[in-house]
């Protein structure tokens, strides 16, 4: 059943084969194989604790920061093994941006928040260049009009939805190729959620977006492909429309119809 993830339509950006994740003695991800195409939004759905966030964090090696976590298997981006000994996770994370569940702007100004990534990666030649990067990132996150007059004010002073869009702008500013989003709307109200979803839809033009969500409606609204995780297994993976209308696996069906999870 795990090779349901290998149905291929677009060229794959991320390929995972036989991924296992252990947290100490817990086997959190069991033999997951999946191909994630470029320029699409891929949603990971499933009940709490099913491993969807854990798997997402494998893609930019954020699990490295957890001492007890151990990842086995093969994950490739553009054919390069990201768990290769020669890969520096710092370099990888510049290529694979991440937006977290809770908006976590730095306690710095809005400008500094967005400029931080470009600064540490040396993406800007001079101040004017950096200003340009910040502006275009904020525009892309649909935040520019709201904050252009108060870039020097603290990012923590924005509303929750604005903070999350600021975090998206911050992730976009480092010019990643893949954008991972871990339940980006769970702390937001419906209006802010709608804004972020609209944004995600635009972002897929340039990035491969992978989003973990609790809300099946959200997965149906924003994603082109959906993966259903259950108890560490990738149960079913395919086109979003098909997953929601005619799921093949009984577990997917009972989750979607609300019987489990």
């Amino acid at each position: 059943m795990n090779d349901t993830g290998l149905t291929d339509t677009a060229p794959a950006k991320i390929t995972a084969r036989g991924v296992q994740v252990y947290y100490g003695g817990t086997h959190a991800i069991k033999d997951v194989s999946v191909d994630i195409p470029d320029n699409t939004v891929t949603a990971f759905i499933g009940p709490s604790g099913c491993g969807k966030s854990t798997f997402l964090r494998c893609i930019n090696r954020m699990n490295d920061t957890i001492a007890v976590a151990r990842v086995e298997g093969d994950i490739r981006i553009d054919g390069e093994d990201i768990y290769d000994r020669r890969v520096d996770p710092v370099q990888l994370r510049a290529k694979v941006g991440m937006v977290f569940q809770k908006p976590n702007p730095f306690p710095k100004s809005i400008y500094d928040n967005v400029a931080y990534g470009p600064r540490i990666h040396g993406l800007a030649k001079d101040r004017a260049d950096l200003d340009g990067i910040v502006e275009s990132a904020l525009r892309r996150a649909a935040l520019w009009e709201e904050v252009k007059d108060r870039l020097a004010q603290p990012g923590t002073g924005l509303s929750g939805g604005q903070q999350q869009r600021l975090c998206i702008a911050r992730a976009v500013a480092t010019a990643p190729e893949v954008l991972l989003m871990d339940e980006p709307c769970s702390a937001l109200d419906p209006i802010a959620t709608a804004q972020v979803e609209e944004l995600i839809d635009e972002l897929k033009q340039n990035y491969s977006v992978v989003i973990v969500t609790h809300s099946m409606q959200q997965a149906a609204r924003v994603s082109q492909r959906t993966a259903f995780f259950h108890l560490g297994h990738l149960v079913e993976y395919g086109e979003t429309g098909r997953i929601f209308t005619s799921p093949e696996d009984p577990r997917t069906e009972s989750y979607i119809s609300g019987r489990i999870g």
């Binding site: 370099q91 994370r93 510049a94 991440m98 977290f100 976590n104 730095f106 931080y116 975090c167 911050r170």
Partner: peptide, 23 residues
């Protein structure tokens, strides 16, 4: 210091030392 700040910095590709010194 909330761990989310460390995550934010690491997620942007900051090294461990940068995340500690800058944030």
């Amino acid at each position: 210091v909330p761990p989310s700040i460390r995550d934010a910095a690491l997620g942007l590709g900051a090294s461990k030392m940068q995340s500690v010194l800058h944030h």
